[in-house]
Amino acid sequence: MNDKLENKGPLVAAIDLGTNTCRLLIAQKTEATLVPVEIFTRIVRLGDELVTYKRISNVARGRAVDALSECAKRLEKYSVSALRCVATAACRDALNRDAFVQEIREKTGLPLEVISTQEEARLAMMSCADQLTQCTRYALIFDIGGGSTELAWVELIPGSVPQVIDSVSIPFGVVTVAEAIRGEPDEHEFQAKVRRAMAKETKAFADRCHVHPHLRKQAIQMIGTSGTLTTLAAIYKNLDHYDRAQVHGMVLNQKELQSLIYKVSRMTLHERLLHPCIGPQRADLIMGGVVIFQGIYDIFGINEVKVVDRGLREGIIFDLFLKTQGGVAA
């Protein structure tokens, strides 16, 4: 390993095998911050047959093995003090989950762990904990994934890590919605149906958490960690290519969000394919994410949403350092 890296502090690594994407992050802790050392992302579309057959297809399994083998190869270049490799909704829901996890372990040597919905929500919160302020007592964090959407109701406690009071995993994700819509005769009606169903699930969660008194006071922070929100933010900035530095931490208000959603919904598939901030990887997924977000927003309606370009892998990294080093600044 590079001597400069050895002198700066320990390395930890995280792998997030999601319904759509496989992500690796190796990071190092310095006195002030975390420094990414190795980043790898590959589309695997693990959930391409999940809606229809409730299984991870053989083709998707092959894509996942290839991506995770590349992750394992990259990990060999470093001496990491801790590694966590997690899988989420696609693996939780697949009938052939156990066989798939065993295949991954045998072919890549990686200790793949299928995490619960509660743990997924907690890690999503960890990924953006530093973006929460003490201006309110509570926050809502949502992560629109490939196979599900996680909502976390979070209490902000001065001087300590924010605490997840309650969370829910709703079985709508950008990949599963995109797969389901292909068999529907009326795309717009199906999208409206998803939006209503998402709103219903969100309202039930809000009722359970007694959110409404805080909503009436607009005394809640709203954080979105999903690719849907980062894509909308990049479109708002009119970027000629996606730039995390210009998107991460942005705040979009209600009027801006409504304008962005209208703009994206008016695009044809061809226009989405050619758009520099959507492109081939998200062209068929973005509208599913938009209607899921609309369902959430129909219930919470908070004026501002902060966009955070982080996900489970960052949450794992922060969590590992917190547990092994006694905390870390993000």
Score class of each variant (00 low, 15 high):
Ile165Gly: 00
Arg182Met: 13
Ile170Met: 06
His188Cys: 06
Gly109Leu: 10
Glu113Ile: 14
Thr136Gln: 07
Glu179Ser: 12
Ile181Trp: 00
Thr149Ala: 03
Leu156Asn: 09
Glu119Val: 02
Val194Met: 04
Val164Leu: 09
Glu189Val: 06
Cys128Met: 13
Ile181Asn: 04
Arg182Glu: 15
Pro111Trp: 14
Glu187His: 12
Gln131Ile: 06
Ile115Leu: 10
Val174Cys: 14
Ala192Met: 01
Glu120Lys: 13
Glu179Lys: 12
Val168Lys: 05
Ser116Tyr: 11
Ala197Leu: 01
Ser148His: 03
Gly146His: 07
Asp186Leu: 02
Arg195Ala: 00
Gly146Asp: 05
Ile104Gln: 11
Asp166Ala: 14
Gly145Cys: 08
Gln163Cys: 08
Pro162Trp: 10
Tyr138Ser: 07
Ala94Arg: 00
Glu150Asn: 11
Phe190Ile: 02
Gln102Trp: 08
Glu119Ser: 01
Leu132Lys: 07
Pro185Glu: 08
Glu119Thr: 10
Ala178Val: 03
Leu95Ser: 09
Leu132Ala: 09
Phe190Arg: 04
Val175Trp: 07
Ile144Lys: 00
Glu189Trp: 00
Lys107Pro: 10
Asp143Gln: 07
Arg97Pro: 04
Thr117Lys: 11
Asp98Gln: 12
Gly146Val: 03
Ile115Asp: 09
Gly147Ile: 03
Val194Lys: 01
Glu119Gly: 02
Ile157Ala: 06
Val154Lys: 05
Ala121Met: 05
Gln131Thr: 13
Pro162Asp: 13
Gly147Tyr: 04
Ile104Val: 15
Gln134Cys: 10
Gln118Arg: 11
Cys135Leu: 13
Thr108Gln: 14
Arg122Ala: 12
Ile141His: 02
Met125Asp: 01
Pro185Met: 04
Asp98Gly: 03
Arg137Thr: 10
Thr133Ser: 15
Leu151Ala: 09
Thr108Tyr: 12
Val154Trp: 01
Val177Gln: 01
Ile165Val: 14
Phe100Gln: 12
Leu151Asn: 07
Ala94Thr: 06
Arg137Trp: 00
Glu184Ala: 09
Asp98Pro: 05
Leu140Glu: 04
Ile170Cys: 08
Gln131His: 15
Pro158Arg: 06
Asp143Ala: 02
Cys128Trp: 03
